[in-house]
Simulated scan of single mutants.
Amino acid sequence: MRVQAFMFYGCAVFFLATDVVYWLWSKDWTGTTVLALAFGLAGLIGFYVHFTIRRLEGGNGGPLYEDDPEGEIADAAGELGFFSPHSWWPLYIGGSAAFVSLGMVFGWWMVLLGGAGLLLSTVGLVFEYYRGHFAH
């Protein structure tokens, strides 16, 4: 995955160069700001991926399976993580986010209700497996 980090670094350099050229030719603050934010986002993601890979490589003592040119698909077999097979909370989060979006069009009271619903459903998703029947 080290390649992905350098791909994001390359995107950040591209956005920076594009931002400078765009500012010199257009003198437009809007596009310049958007390109500067794109540069920052690509650099941030590249740094995060690079940092995470360095931490993971230190944990198992070598390169990751996907970085090994001689690696086989079976080398990375095993558990990838835990994914909830029955959770309804993502549906509630999506509905609350849609309510917030509609609230920006129709009225701020909907934004407040949707924000409260979004907060509650996010807490429900995060703490789903801490209490009750499905507690670990």
Rank of each mutant, 00 (worst) to 15 (best):
L16Q: 10
G71Y: 09
W89S: 02
I73H: 13
R131E: 04
I45A: 11
L102Y: 11
Y22E: 02
S84Y: 03
H136D: 09
G31C: 01
M104G: 14
L118E: 01
S26V: 07
A74H: 09
W89D: 03
Y130C: 05
C11V: 07
L125Q: 07
A98W: 11
S121G: 09
L91R: 10
G103Y: 09
S101P: 02
G71K: 07
I93T: 09
L56A: 15
R54P: 02
Y9H: 12
S84F: 00
G40Q: 10
Y9D: 05
R55I: 09
A76H: 04
V49R: 13
L119E: 09
G62S: 15
E72C: 10
F127T: 00
H133Q: 02
G46W: 05
E70K: 12
V21C: 08
L91I: 10
L16F: 14
Y129P: 03
L120R: 05
F134I: 01
V123P: 03
F39R: 00
G40V: 04
A116Q: 04
F15W: 13
M110T: 00
S87N: 06
I73L: 15
Q4F: 12
V105M: 11
F51D: 14
P85K: 10
L56K: 15
A38S: 14
V49Y: 05
G31F: 01
L119Q: 01
D68P: 09
P69V: 05
L16S: 12
E66W: 05
A135E: 03
G31W: 09
G31D: 02
A76R: 12
L125R: 11
A77D: 15
F134G: 00
T30M: 13
F106A: 07
A97V: 13
G117S: 07
F127Y: 01
W108Q: 02
L56W: 13
L91V: 14
G61T: 11
G103F: 06
G58R: 11
L120N: 06
F99R: 00
G124F: 08
R131D: 03
L56Q: 15
Y65L: 08
G40Y: 05
I73C: 04
S101Q: 09
W88V: 05
F39A: 08
W89A: 04
L113Q: 03
T122W: 06
Y22G: 04
T33H: 11
L41E: 08
F106H: 07
A42C: 15
A12K: 01
E79G: 03
A38F: 12
W25L: 14
D75I: 02
V100Q: 07
F106D: 08
L35N: 10
F14K: 11
T122V: 13
L35R: 03
S121W: 01
